[in-house]
Design a protein around this nucleic acid. Structure first.
Length: 910
RNA sequence: GGACGGCUAGCUCAGUUGGUUAGAGCGACUGGUUUACACCCAGUAGGUCACAGGUUCGAGUCCUGUGCCGUCCACCA
């Protein structure tokens, strides 16, 4: 074994081995419990981010733990076609070759997109392999796969037949960059610095009278069809029913009254542009006002806006029209204003409320979706996300599911050629299409990507095809055990999957018929949902590609190993809190692996490894008369650690699991038990017993650590001779009680009292080391200690004298009756200890060293004293600096006294 | 406007039903290569637990209020 652990070779070799053994392949096996996870499918053309590392490491930990526990595990991988994102990327790539989407045409474009996907796609899956993810790769699914598409279209058709999918002319969120409608969830509100324009509208019927209106969007004035006031607003009561002249493209428009007007905002008068504002549209409907569109799909003004503005981009038009208003004397005021504007999440441009013909979905099973979470049939970790989830469901709006894109699942609706599309009697809706396709034309739109991924747990297991479901073990693996994802997609994905699961799994119910409680549980797509935190950079910003603040996980794997990365990220992943990334934590993970490697290496150098193939074999090497208190203590701690790990798994407290394992391994096992072993294994009598206990601890440690750091643990598992017929991957760590059982079978019972004694001994050793270190005697192994203690404690001290002396680095511990004077002392729970400064010391060397220390202090002290006597220093320096100087002076003076005393004692002896 | 989270050592964070003297890692400082490990060992320093009240024998922990930071939802033109 090399001195330092080098992950690279080990990781690649072991991953290949796991794949060739088929260790990750899932089979429905009724004799065992099922454990299943579906991966949140990443964008097929994406690359691995730190968020993926966190998310997938958690899933891998759970999958590997379940595999060890003997469950039949399915971790199902796959990728998402990511409609807008991928189409935009492909369009940009095509643009570089001088072509456009339109010039290629739909079929050719999609062909190019597939080529592009196949070329750039799948990178992320290979990156997950580097991370060690134990997915069943033979089951890899892509949302545009033929089978998956069938299931997406099938869901659409079923919901259509139920009357839940409908087509309609509605106000939607329009993205002028991507030229498509978006769902409400894809719009992000951003505070903007804009201008509030106050515009004057002259009253037609009363010359000289006018109304003032505040707006942030003067470019839409050309689409105004009315002004609205509040019906009870006394200020304009007499104007209701009269008309004003539109200040741009002048025509007379009515003054109407509507409750929706906020009297307190601006002037209390609202201009109504039904084509370009959601509220205005509603008011317009109520008052049967005309709808005048003045914007094109791409955000430029259209011909209706007039020759002066047609073709001009919306923000340029805003400027132009405001200037025009100013010239005409219609602009009363303009002032800076901060408001929230909706942006397209993908394209990052302001969205445009736009009236258009789209497909909408009324969500199915909303009530049941609330119920399954309220009743705990699906549990959220942390629990608090339940409130967010329920609040969203309470206020749920119909979902706009059509997208004006080419990359995606094309809507399975056909219209009779040459007939009016708005009449449903001219529609054909089916998965396979009409039998006489020549007479029909298919709807041009595709489905929102989330309208495919909401079926993920169902479709990846073969739904809705019976044969496919049987082959993929649907009944065995569904509902899946746990979903691991970020809270940022709780609405996009989690909530929708729950509704889809409830709707589509099992026998169908009529729309108005609630699913009975007893069959809810088998229909939910997953039982637990673990929400990870969001990874932020050192400044607390969300990691993103555009900020360039996300490290490349592959670089980190290269530098610290996959195990180091996994350990690091898991140790900073508290339950559901955002995570501030720091490379130092990854370094710590690497160091942990190295420590594990080295203590194992030490074990291989200490003695034979035979007899390690099972706990029974290991314990058979124990000689009862050689079992020491140290052995009992480490076993008690091991048991406590196992129990703690068990408890933390059930509540998904991964950082606590690692913390418990780290503490046991490093602070208890390495720092104390193995150090103590060094003396014991020199002695043939106790060697075998001591090594057996070491082996038992190491074995359990490796088993417990394996889900987190699979590579190094598997490597050490075989290097230390633990491997039997079973790989570490399928070997369960002992439960706490199992451990007690195993031990009592060979006659070892654990006495909690022993732990206290060992604890006291540790405390003593630490104190004695400290008293030595303070006097720069750390390396002197000849020092002697005197102590005063009662007879009970004295017996205890005598019992552990040898190991205390070894650990402290001292020659003797001698009991005295009287407290010696003039010696440095420490007080512990079991007695007062004095460092005998005169004994066992190289007097000449110590004396010259003391003199050197004193000489140095005699230089330092006057310089601090001078500083403190300086008036300017005292008045100008910050208080803490002055205090610091005073403390420094006092400490050095104290040191001087101590050293002087020690010196006088030393010289008296010489 | 509504909801949720955070505020603990210089930094990043643990702290699970309220209970000895509040912990870890990193960083700082001191000393150390005695054959597992310098990716290491031994030791030291460093905290008014955001603030103000309250409940209690006892509060980092529970309650009320305030402040700052962050997230989500809604949104008034």
């Amino acid at each position: 074994m090399d001195k330092a652990y080098s992950p690279r070779e080990v990781e690649d070799r072991l991953y290949e081995k796991w794949l060739s053994e088929g260790a990750f392949e899932a089979r429905a096996d009724e004799s065992r419990d099922a454990f299943s996870i579906v991966i949140p499918p990443p964008n097929v053309t994406g690359v691995l981010t730190m968020g993926h590392v966190l998310n997938n490491t958690i899933q891998d930990v759970l999958a590997r733990r379940a595999r060890q526990e003997g469950k039949s595990v399915l971790w199902l991988p796959g990728t998402d076609h990511a409609g807008i994102a991928t189409q935009t990327k492909v369009e940009n790539a095509i643009k570089e070759t001088g072509r456009t989407r339109e010039s290629l045409g739909r079929e050719e474009f999609n062909l190019q997109a597939c080529l592009w996907r196949d070329e750039h796609g799948g990178i992320i899956l290979n990156q997950l392999k580097k991370l060690g993810c134990s997915c069943d790769w033979s089951r890899n699914v892509h949302t545009l796969d033929e089978d998956y598409s069938q299931s997406v279209l099938s869901a659409f058709v079923r919901l259509f037949k139920k009357g839940y999918v409908y087509r309609g002319q509605r106000m939607v969120n329009w993205c002028p960059a991507s030229l498509t409608a978006l769902s409400d969830e894809e719009v992000v509100m951003k505070p903007q610095s804009s201008t509030l324009y106050k515009v004057k509208y002259n009253v037609v019927e009363s010359p000289g009278a006018f109304l003032e209106v505040c707006t942030t969007r003067p470019e839409t004035i050309v689409g105004d069809v009315a002004l609205a006031i509040h019906p009870e607003d006394p200020r304009w009561k007499n104007l209701q029913g009269k008309h004003v002249m539109r200040p741009v493209n002048p025509i007379a428009i009515p003054i109407i009254a509507d409750d929706a007007v906020d009297r307190d905002f601006g002037t209390g008068v609202l201009k109504i542009t039904p084509a370009h504002d959601k509220l205005d549209f509603e008011i317009g409907q109520r008052h049967e006002l005309p709808i005048i569109e003045v914007l094109n799909a791409d955000g430029t003004m259209n011909e209706v806006a007039g020759n002066d503005y047609a073709g001009i981009e919306r923000f340029a038009a805003r400027k132009l029209i405001s200037e025009r208003l100013k010239q005409d004397g219609h602009l009363v005021a303009e002032e800076p204003y901060r408001n929230n504007v909706g942006f397209s999440e993908r394209s990052d441009v302001p969205i445009e409320p736009r009236l258009s013909e789209q497909w909408f979905l009324k969500y199915p099973r909303v009530e049941e979706a609330k119920k399954v979470v309220r009743k705990g049939l699906i549990r959220f970790f942390p629990e608090r996300w339940e409130k967010t989830y329920l609040h969203w469901l309470e206020n749920i709006q119909d979902w706009c599911i059509s997208r004006q894109l080419w990359w995606g699942h094309r809507i399975p609706v056909w219209y009779r050629k040459g007939k009016v599309r708005t009449d449903p009697s001219n529609w054909h809706v089916s998965v396979s299409g009409p039998s006489d396709p020549e007479n029909w034309e298919q709807d041009e739109d595709v489905l929102d990507t989330w309208a495919s991924s909401w079926l993920w747990p169902l479709a990846t297991l073969g739904w809705p095809d019976d044969d496919d479901m049987r082959e993929k073990g649907f009944d065995y693996f569904y509902p899946t055990s746990v979903l691991v994802t970020g809270p940022d997609i709780i609405f996009f994905w989690v909530a929708r999957m729950i509704m889809a699961g409830l709707e589509f799994n099992g026998r169908s119910y009529k729309p108005d018929q609630l699913i009975p409680d007893e069959s809810l549980e088998e229909r939910v797509p997953f039982r637990n949902v673990y929400f990870t935190g969001i990874i932020r950079d050192a400044e607390g910003r969300k990691m993103s590609k555009s900020l360039g603040n996300s490290p490349d996980p592959l670089d980190l794997i290269e530098k610290y190993g996959a195990d180091g990365l996994r350990h690091g990220i898991m140790s900073i992943a508290p339950k559901g809190q955002d995570i501030r990334f720091s490379e130092e934590r990854i370094e710590q993970g690497r160091n942990f692996c190295n420590k594990l490697w080295n203590v194992s290496r030490f074990r291989t150098l200490s003695g034979s490894l035979s007899g390690n193939q099972s706990p029974v074999e290991i314990l058979s090497r124990v000689r009862l008369d050689q079992v020491m208190e140290e052995d009992q203590a480490i076993l008690i701690r091991l048991k406590a650690t196992i129990d703690e790990v068990e408890r933390c798994y059930s509540s998904y407290e991964f950082n606590s699991i690692l913390h418990a394992l780290y503490k046991f391994f490093w602070n208890d096992f390495c720092d104390w038990y193995v150090e103590n072993s060094k003396a014991r294994i020199k002695n043939e009598e106790g060697k075998d017993t001591c090594l057996a206990i070491q082996d038992l601890c190491l074995r359990e440690m490796l088993l417990l650590l394996h889900p987190f750091i699979p590579f190094i643990t598997e490597e050490l598992w075989s290097l230390l001779g633990f491997s039997s017929a079973k790989s570490i991957q399928f070997e369960a760590p002992a439960k706490g009680d199992d451990l007690i059982g195993m031990l009592s079978k060979v006659g070892i019972t654990l006495d909690p009292q022993v732990l206290e004694e060992i604890e006291a001994q540790r405390e003593l050793i630490t104190q004695l080391r400290s008293i030595k270190a303070e006097r720069n005697l750390s390396n002197n192994r000849e020092v002697e200690f005197l102590y005063v203690a009662d007879s009970e404690n004295a017996a205890l001290i005598a019992k552990s004298e040898k190991s205390v002396l070894e650990a402290v680095g001292a020659k003797s511990l001698r009991q005295v009756e009287e407290h010696p004077s003039g010696l440095p002392a420490v007080v512990t729970a079991i007695g007062s200890f004095y460092l005998d400064l005169s004994s066992g010391i190289d007097l000449e060397a110590e004396i010259s060293r003391m003199k050197k220390e004193i000489e140095n202090l005699n230089k330092v002290i006057p310089s601090i004293e001078y500083k403190l006597s300086n008036e300017k220093f005292l008045t100008n320096a910050p208080a803490d600096v002055v205090e610091g100087a005073r403390a420094q002076l006092a400490e050095n003076q104290m040191k001087l006294r101590e050293f002087t005393e020690i010196l006088s004692l030393l010289t008296a002896k010489s």
